[in-house]
């Protein structure tokens, strides 16, 4: 399921900033739980590569981060046990789990983010901001594979010239450095050809536009609008103090008042928005295909 790939990058970018951003500055465990569920669901249904590896790593990270906090933070009333004269408290442990959930869910959001916002979409986003760095990104991305290829060629050429004198580590490092040095010369000198080619095609003659193959369709407006609206709702609830939550000295109780419930519902919708889009798209295709 890759429906999000065809959305306008700006809408997708705003969505991820909203969902991950709220997770990053909320301490409310329910919000973080929703964030975690939404991010993991999206990651799983998009079938990004290396599923098991990522989940195992995340679990490991979650456990480590959970344990670290009580080792350094000794506030809290409920002492579980004493380690080296330092009390290990339940509150600090729960705080650790809370922070770990935040970190891990943000990591999941970013996994999906970088698979959707590929480098040319990033280029487009930069282009909205300012065309020159956008062009530099495009050039650098053009140069990276070129340079890696050339570095390989240079290394082979040097080897076949007998420039590697002995089979040992120092000689190896010495040669790698000179290969890199040859590369620098080559890249700079040949860069002039690129620059001439740019000038020959009128670079710098006037106001440059930034061509984008991405259109802004109703579906993008919907995603953008919903992201802003739901994030705004959660933000408003936060600003009004509706999501206050403390761990020390004791863990606060969650009181089901209106503001809090509204924020939870808004964030739940936000968190599962992309998964809904993916599933809806898949169902639509299934339906359309069934009619053929």
């Amino acid at each position: 399921m890759k429906a999000l790939d065809s959305f306008n990058p700006l809408a997708v970018f705003v969505y991820f900033m909203a969902s991950a951003g709220i997770a990053m500055f909320s301490m409310d465990p329910v919000i973080l739980l929703l964030s975690m569920l939404g991010a993991v669901t999206l990651f799983v249904i998009r079938r990004e590569g290396r599923q098991t590896g990522t989940h195992l790593f995340s679990l490991f990270l979650f456990l480590t981060l959970t344990v670290i906090n009580p080792l350094f933070q000794h506030n809290g009333r409920t002492v579980l046990f004493v380690l080296n004269d330092n009390p290990i408290t339940l509150e600090a442990l729960l705080y650790g789990a809370d922070a770990a959930a935040m970190v891990v869910s943000v990591l999941y959001w970013f996994r999906s983010f970088s698979s959707i916002i590929t480098s040319d979409k990033l280029l487009y986003l930069f282009g909205l901001l300012s065309p020159k760095p956008a062009l530099m990104i495009s050039m650098a991305l053009r140069f990276v594979p070129l340079f890696r290829m050339q570095a390989k060629r240079t290394d082979m050429a040097q080897r076949a010239l007998g420039k590697y004198k002995e089979d040992n580590a120092i000689d190896f490092i010495r040669m790698k450095l000179s290969v890199f040095s040859i590369m620098v010369s080559w890249a700079l000198e040949n860069g002039i050809i690129t620059a001439d080619s740019m000038a020959a095609r009128g670079y710098g003659t006037g106001r440059r536009t930034c061509f984008s193959p991405y259109k802004f369709r109703p579906q993008d407006a919907l995603l953008l609008g919903l992201s802003l609206m739901l994030a705004g709702a959660v933000g408003a609830a936060m600003a009004l103090g509706g999501l206050e939550f403390a761990f020390y000295p004791t863990v606060s109780k969650i009181s089901p008042d209106f503001l809090r419930l509204a924020a939870y519902i808004a964030y739940a919708l936000l968190s599962f928005l992309p998964a809904t889009i993916e599933i809806g798209d898949a169902l639509k295709w299934q339906y359309l295909r069934s009619r053929i």
């Binding site: 050039m139 700079l188 740019m198 000038a199």
Partner: peptide, 18 residues
């Protein structure tokens, strides 16, 4: 910025990425 300068900075960026 001239195109040459822009290219050189991009070249150096690409080199450090590599």
């Amino acid at each position: 910025t001239g195109s040459r300068r822009l290219v050189i900075v991009s070249v150096l960026t690409a080199l450090s990425i590599v």
